[in-house]
Simulated scan of single mutants.
Amino acid sequence: MRLPVSGLLILALVLAGCGRIRESRLNPFNWFGRSQPAAVAVTEPAVPGRPDDPRILVAEVTEMEVARQPGGAIVRAAGLPPTQGWWDAALVAENNGEPVDGVLTYRFVVDQPRGPARVSTPQSREVTAAAYLSDIKLANITQIVVLGAGNSRSSRR
């Protein structure tokens, strides 16, 4: 059965309008992209606002992703400390979790091993940490940065 000319015209207009959705914040594929390496300028080993926190920045941030969840997103990062045995990993938000010019920054901190530690393989040393962000908090965020001692990774939308 053939579509009338008006039906084809309407179908063409609807399909052409779908291209604009790609730029919308409603499009789940237009969310935070893959993380990219970013320059790091970190001077303090302690977590700001928590002088009693003995944790230090992870040596290298190897990966970072922002995964959409109902009601918000989960920021997950993996890091590589110099040896095995590092623990108590966490993403600690800077500026009390408030974005600065649309950029929310996390410090990826870990606690030192409690005894002698082996170097072994990178896979056996990897640590992971995550943080949840609500949709309300995400409304003002255009970029998320995770800082390590030697590098940082960022993801923007």
Rank of each mutant, 00 (worst) to 15 (best):
D101C: 01
V92R: 04
V92T: 03
T62K: 11
G115E: 09
A129E: 09
N96Y: 10
A77I: 00
P70N: 07
L57C: 14
S6E: 15
F29N: 15
S6I: 15
V40F: 01
A73R: 01
P99W: 00
L138S: 08
T121P: 08
L57W: 06
D52N: 12
G85R: 00
V5L: 11
R76T: 15
E65S: 15
G49C: 12
K137A: 15
N140G: 15
Q84N: 13
T83L: 04
V145M: 05
R156L: 06
F32M: 04
A46Y: 10
V146N: 00
V109E: 04
G33K: 01
V92L: 08
R157G: 00
R118Y: 08
A16L: 07
Q84A: 12
A139T: 13
V66M: 04
R25P: 01
R55F: 07
V14P: 06
T142K: 07
G85E: 07
N95K: 07
A38D: 06
T62V: 14
A78T: 14
V58G: 07
A78W: 05
G72A: 06
V146I: 06
T121W: 04
V42S: 15
A149Y: 05
V103A: 09
R114M: 09
P116A: 09
T43R: 14
G97P: 12
A67F: 03
W31Y: 12
G79H: 06
V58E: 10
P28E: 05
V42R: 11
W86K: 02
G115Y: 01
R76W: 02
N151W: 01
V58Q: 09
S154D: 09
E94I: 03
V127A: 05
G115S: 13
R118P: 13
R118W: 07
